[in-house]
């Protein structure tokens, strides 16, 4: 990976956002809407239920914030590619001395920045609006975020690979892929709430261990490092599989001339 090339590709993305502030709507507005909806729902449930109501309900806000880490990281990878498609710049990039590693490295960096911006905003607002402090997770927050970032990058690579393989008509996958897994990711409810068969699906997703872990940590103050270890191990597998898929699809794209079709449509 060449750092200068990664820097140049990231710089292009930053230029894009500073040139057109309206893009911040996508980065700030939708997450804010989610926070407000889930935050006020949480407050309503807290005020209108007795003490027997599950304590975890207050963690819905934490779930909104951490889900955004995964979603923004995935979007960073997938939207980065689509920006080149939309601007008919794809061939300029792939005909330049840019390796797959350079390209992916820059998408990871953009995903990290996107997640950083959104999560910072949501974390600060949730303190002021709902007295919910995600930082009360302490140091455990770092492995939680790290695991969600890695899984988001992996999903981003898978989304991009599918779009390359199936063409511009599959663009919507850039937004849809994270929501394919969301029902099984234990974001807003525990894995045990799922039917037994689907619990196995949940246990195959690294993010389910993070969301379960977040609830446990906020409730007990203890961190289940073993579960986080499983999440990290699964993430290594997902990242490797997604990387292999991406490289193989790019090779198929070169075989079938798929990249040139993005420029002509």
């Amino acid at each position: 990976m060449n750092f200068g090339t990664v820097q140049a590709l990231v710089m292009r993305y930053l230029y894009l956002y500073t040139r057109t502030p309206i893009r911040a709507v996508e980065l700030l507005f939708w997450p804010l809407v989610h926070l407000l909806v889930w935050g006020y729902l949480t407050m309503f449930l807290q005020q209108n239920t007795d003490d027997s109501f599950p304590y975890e309900i207050t963690f819905l806000i934490g779930a909104v914030i951490l889900w955004d880490v995964l979603f923004r990281a995935q979007q960073g990878v997938a939207i980065f590619f689509l920006e080149d498609v939309w601007s008919r710049n794809l061939l300029n990039v792939f005909a330049a001395p840019v390796t797959n590693a350079d390209y992916l490295g820059s998408t990871y960096a953009v995903g990290l920045m996107r997640a950083g911006v959104t999560v910072t905003m949501l974390s600060v607002l949730s303190i002021f609006l709902y007295s919910f402090n995600i930082f009360s997770l302490g140091w455990a927050l770092l492995p939680f975020i790290f695991n969600l970032l890695i899984f988001g990058w992996a999903l981003g690579m898978i989304s991009t690979a599918l779009i390359v393989r199936w063409g511009p008509a599959a663009e919507t996958l850039a937004w849809a892929v994270p929501f394919f897994i969301q029902p099984f990711a234990a974001v807003y409810y525990p894995v045990s709430a799922l039917p037994v068969a689907l619990q196995w699906v949940a246990k195959s997703l690294p993010c389910s261990y993070v969301f379960e872990g977040m609830r446990d940590t906020l409730k007990t103050g203890e961190v289940d490092w073993a579960s986080l270890g499983i999440a990290t191990g699964l993430n290594v597998v997902y990242l490797a599989v997604a990387g292999i898929l991406f490289v193989r699809v790019m090779n198929v794209a070169r075989e079938k001339g798929l990249l040139t079709k993005f420029s002509s449509q």
């Binding site: 292009r12 230029y15 894009l16 040139r19 057109t20 920006e83 080149d84 601007s87 008919r88 710049n89 794809l90 061939l91 300029n92 420029s263 002509s264």
Partner: peptide, 13 residues
């Protein structure tokens, strides 16, 4: 002629 540079960026960018 079939490619463009990103239209949102300035020429120098």
């Amino acid at each position: 002629t079939y490619t463009q540079l990103p239209g949102n960026l300035r020429v120098w960018q």
